[in-house]
Design a protein around this nucleic acid. Sequence first.
DNA 1: CTCACTATACTGTATATACAACCTTATACA
DNA 2: TGTATAAGGTTGTATATACAGTATAGTGAG
Lengths: 240, 240
Amino acid sequence: MNLAQPIYARVKDHILAQIRSGALVAGSRVPSENELVSQFSISRMTANRALRELTADGFLSRVPGVGTFVREATPRTSLIELRNIADEIASRGHHYSSRIEDLREMMATPNLIDDFELRATTPLYHIAIVHEENGMPVQFEDRYVNPFCAPNFLKQDFSHQTPTAYLLSLLPAEELEHNVEAILPDANQQRRLKISSSEPCLSLHRRTWSGGHVVTSATLIYPASRYALYSRTSLGKQTS
Amino acid sequence: MNLAQPIYARVKDHILAQIRSGALVAGSRVPSENELVSQFSISRMTANRALRELTADGFLSRVPGVGTFVREATPRTSLIELRNIADEIASRGHHYSSRIEDLREMMATPNLIDDFELRATTPLYHIAIVHEENGMPVQFEDRYVNPFCAPNFLKQDFSHQTPTAYLLSLLPAEELEHNVEAILPDANQQRRLKISSSEPCLSLHRRTWSGGHVVTSATLIYPASRYALYSRTSLGKQTS
DNA sequence: CTCACTATACTGTATATACAACCTTATACA
DNA sequence: TGTATAAGGTTGTATATACAGTATAGTGAG
């Protein structure tokens, strides 16, 4: 990928890494712009940009004349946690199985170039897999993976480990994007999920970031009669 | 209002106003940094900041060597935030209207007793309202409200303030529960949302807690063709 | 006509500089 | 002691400048 990362992005990563590692906890003071200037031998405008963007992203809070501080961990929880469907099914005491329909390398289409925030077409890995609960299809997973982030993806045995579980074991998910739609299944989806054309489905599109890269982009199809998405969230504090 | 607004913010507002007014539509080219320099007699760094922040906010898309363009306005609802649909529609520069179909007191049914964690049947307030964007129905809201938490609910004028906005102004949301399903609309929903029986819809059921009570329980129906649910989440720390 | 090259425009980043506004602390003065 | 003032550090904004990378249009050679 991009080894020549911009300086301000390296400063952002440095501070984010300290937050994630626990070296900087909520309320901690982060280095001032002038201190960053000395530490990294950069100009104050570059330090300013790094801190300003981290503030816009919700990680920091700045007070003129005082300093910059780590914000309370945002009370936002993803509606859909990154849960492993195999574990989920096992936790209900049911039997999990899967059927892999496709597993190969392919070139990124224009849509995928957008999805992965690429500049030009590159090879991507693709997997299509049907997840089954007691032999009944409950989810169709259509996933693309960035080879840069998971070069050995194609060599994995996905009959014993789901793609989600494998990717999570490789890289921490730092950012998630979800898009949920209601759809009617097309012919292929009807066949895969053994449902009729009149049964609506949830289409959950998820992108996952790690280290500034889009690691994977997946579309998960759930038949409405067999699945719903659920979340319960406590909001520690009210955001302004 | 801040009368002494920074220059870059004025430039942002100027471009946003053009997008909202329709002078700039999706795909339109917005002035280049150098053109903004001439128009506003500012430095290129200031123009760059305005365009860069509008891009980060999702309004613009920039291509090095080519130009800056207005992005497709995707009507997306955050999955997790409690956003006001009227504000959301207004932020797209569209006209919000609503049609109230029901507003009255009623006795809790067994299902509602469960929903509100009650022990016996009690009076509840009910509102049924169709939200419209530029005259087109985009959401049907079927909401029950705990009179204990909002005793004056029935006296409000919900043509000028949505139920969500009113309840949020009364009480902070401390806990949220979401349940998302894909459904096919029944006859009533087809009529209300002006859709066909074969158009799938998202059904979002939300319960909101405050002060240990269930304040409100609402079912929101979105036609699939007009709405999708969206969320993007930064994970400061890794969740299990 | 085709291909390679060039000029141009645009975005992206980085720096040095400047000034304003804000807050805290130390100092001087009454 | 109490108060006003000054100093220094911090964020916030704005500018001028520079160079790199990318895409496109045009130009000229073959």
